[in-house]
């Protein structure tokens, strides 16, 4: 069970208030019409899914309803940091 710090509310809240929304930092192709099927398919469906450090998007669904990013270890489940949309993570996999 996670105890998650919401960077918008500036408070620790229980996991039940949050919803995991998958991998973070997926950039939408600038010109979707120009994408090949392969490029578009990879943007839509292919994911990093690492065992270890992972950057992911969460939403404080039953709270402020705002999205934010989290860096988490998918093996130990340890939350390394949370940071707002648009910011860069300070903890990255080597």
């Amino acid at each position: 069970m996670f105890h998650i710090y919401c960077p918008h509310c500036a408070e620790y809240r229980e996991e039940e208030e949050f919803h995991a929304a998958g991998q973070a930092h997926i950039a939408r192709p600038l010109d979707p019409e120009a994408c090949s099927d392969k490029e578009w398919g990879e943007y839509m469906f292919f994911r990093k899914n690492p065992r270890g450090i992972h950057h992911e998007l969460w939403v404080h669904a039953a709270g402020c309803r705002k999205f934010f990013n989290m860096t988490r270890d998918t093996q130990s489940y340890e939350i390394k940091e949370v940071y707002k949309i648009g910011e860069k993570p300070s903890v990255v996999a080597e």
Binding site: G22, Q23, E42, F45, F46, R47, K48, N49, P50, R51, T74
Partner: peptide, 18 residues
């Protein structure tokens, strides 16, 4: 569950989430 880890060793990604 570890398919993505093996795929990474092979140098490609899969459309999977574990």
């Amino acid at each position: 569950g570890n398919s993505s880890v093996l795929a990474k060793m092979a140098g490609f990604e899969l459309p999977l989430e574990s």
